[in-house]
Structures are given as C-alpha cells and as structure tokens.
C-alpha cells in the first residue's frame, strides 16, 4: 500500500572511520552481500539510493511511451502482450522503490524528487513513440540494452538490489524477445510496415546506445562503483557487448543500422562504431530532449489528479475499521 512510503528516513552514517571502511571493503572483496541492517559507508548508501531510485523512476516513466500505443495496438493479442509488459514494468518500479526504501529513503521523497526534476530517469524515455514499430524497437533495443546493464547487477554487492534484478531480468528477457518478434513481423510485412521498422531502428539506435551512459573517460561514478561491486563492467564495455549482440539481429531482420562507420573488426572480434552524439545525450539528460517536458508533466498530472484518492485512503484507514464484505 502507498502509505508504506510514509515511513521516515533512517539515520545516515556520517562518521565513516578508516577501520570501518576497510572492514567493509574486505566484505565486498570476499563477495559477501551487504544487507539493509549492515553497516555501510554513507557514500555507498547514497550511490545506491541514486541508482536504484533512478532505475525505479525509469520503469515508471517508461510506462508512458508504450502506454502511448496501448489503445491503438493492432490486434487483441498485441494489446494483451503490451498491457502485460507495461504491467511488468510498473511492477519493477514497485519492486525497486521497495529496494531503495531499505536504504532509508521514503517512496514519497523519491517521487517528489522525480516530479521536481531533481532525480533523473533513463534518457531513452524522452524520445517519442511515433509508429507501432516503435513498440518492437523498444522491446528489442531498449529492453535489450537494459538487460546488458542489468544482468551484471544480479551480482551487485547490495542484497536487495541484486535480488530485485534477478527477478527483473527474467521478465526483461521475455520483453526483449517479444519486441524482436514485433520487428520480425514488421520487417517481413508490407512495404509500409518495413518502412516503419527501418524508421524505428533509425530513431532508436543511437538513443539505445546512450542508455549505457557517458563514455568511460567521462563517467564520474564508475571507478568507486566498480570498487564497491555495485557495477561490474564499464559503460563502454557493456555498450560494445550490446552492439556485438544486436548487429547480427538487425542483419537477420534485413534492416540497416544507421551508422555508416559500423564495421566488423577482424582483429578485435568486435563491431567498431561511429561516435555517439554526446551533445544530444547531455541535452536530453539536462531536460532538453524531445519529450522531457511531456513525460514529467504526465507524471505530475497523474500525481496531482490522484492526490484526493491517496488522501481518502489515509482518511478511511484512520476513520474506520473496514466492514467486509460489500455486495
């Protein structure tokens, strides 16, 4: 229930002594899981709160671009699959908010931070979904990139996050396959469907690569996160892994990846790619993507329109013991 989120934040560790830090690092190095009641450095806590809440926000905001097509899904089967997928994403959000709450931050605080623009969510959801093929591209590329990011998180040193990720990854892999299946239908369909499929790949390819974050040389959080085993691979390594896995899938669809510099490197065994437009990436992160304002406005609207419902729930809990069973 929502009111769980009303619990106050726990005390923060502010006096990390060198002995405590060393003992903590020893546990990390021994691959022990850190649990909510365990001592942890305040920076570790802060990092996880930032990362897990950002992840939760992404799942919640991520409902919007797909929800945009749910009323227009082309068949009953596709509508059912899309509804189930969006429901999964909202469930991931719930699961992740709960994981973050174990670190002493309330859901209300996290949501306030999202709505005020203080907290971030994945940049990918600030791009519009313009055709039905985008539902395929999101499953295939966006969930595909998310899986690359999240599979290593199943071994994250923080227990609740790691366990959440194990569950989330199972569902994401199903999402990825259904997205690819939509693309397969479109790529093998009518000329118009094929055009939509290629157009969706053109629009989502680069934003999907940006999901892995800044390049390693510019990532301010990476080194410490790797040492704490929150992160296991660098942004660029994961991005390369994603490209290597995805290029043959695009070829199988008969679609062209919108990167003229994309070339298989016999020496390294990897696909070399062109430079990402980092200006665009930082613009979208800063709130200047095509849909940033709309996405946040939609979340704010839902939150404000639902305020009376949440107030009524609390009032009703306080006023009465609920009689059972109505009609």
């Amino acid at each position: 229930m929502y009111s769980q989120g009303l619990n106050g934040p726990a005390e923060k560790n502010t006096d990390d002594s060198p002995e405590q830090l060393a003992a903590f690092q020893k546990r990390i190095d021994a691959e022990e899981k850190i649990e909510p009641r365990d001592w942890m450095p305040s920076g570790y806590r802060k990092t996880l709160i930032r990362q897990i809440s950002q992840h939760a926000h992404s799942e919640v905001v991520g409902q919007l671009p797909e929800g945009n097509w749910v009323t227009r899904a082309p068949t009953l089967k596709r509508k059912l699959i899309l509804l189930a997928k969006i429901q999964d994403e909202a469930g991931h959000g719930l699961y992740l908010y709960s994981a973050a709450e174990t670190l002493g931050v309330s859901r209300e605080q996290m949501i306030d931070d999202l709505l005020s623009g203080k907290a971030k969510y994945s940049s990918i959801f600030n791009y519009p979904t313009l055709t039905w093929a985008d539902m395929g591209a999101i499953g295939w590329l966006v969930d595909g990139a998310a899986i690359m990011n999240q599979v290593p998180l199943c071994r994250c040193s923080y227990g609740p996050y790691s366990r959440a990720m194990i569950r989330v990854c199972k569902e994401e892999s199903f999402h990825q396959r259904q997205g690819y299946e939509v693309m397969l239908k479109m790529a093998n369909g009518s000329p118009e469907q094929r055009r939509m499929a290629q157009d969706a790949l053109n629009r989502f390819w680069w934003p999907a690569l940006m999901m892995f974050g800044p390049s390693d040389k510019d990532s301010i959080h990476s080194a410490q996160s790797m040492k704490w085993k929150i992160k296991r691979f660098s942004n660029d390594d994961l991005r390369q892994k994603f490209i290597d896995a995805t290029v043959p899938q695009a070829h199988y669809l008969g679609l062209e990846i919108p990167d003229p510099e994309l070339k298989f490197n016999e020496e390294t065994g990897h696909w070399d790619h062109g430079e990402i437009n980092w200006d665009e990436f930082y613009q979208v992160i800063a709130g200047n993507g095509p849909c940033n304002r709309e996405r946040l406005a939609a979340r704010r609207r839902a939150h404000e329109a639902g305020a009376w419902v949440r107030e009524a729930v609390l009032a009703s809990q306080q006023k009465h013991k609920q009689p059972r069973e109505v009609a």
Binding site: L76, L80, A90, G93
Partner: peptide, 29 residues
Amino acid sequence: LSEWCGHGPFLEEDIALTNLSLDLIGQAQ
C-alpha cells in the same frame, strides 16, 4: 481501462487498472 495505463493515482493502482484491462481484453478475445 487501458487508457489509464501509466496515469493511475499511485503505482499499485496503476498495476491494478492494467490488470483489470488485461483480464477484460482476454475475456473479449
């Protein structure tokens, strides 16, 4: 009900509304 997708008064109810919609579309099928 599917029009509510992502716009519910809180996350649990978002999930519930989607679930109702999912059941009903399945029944319709």
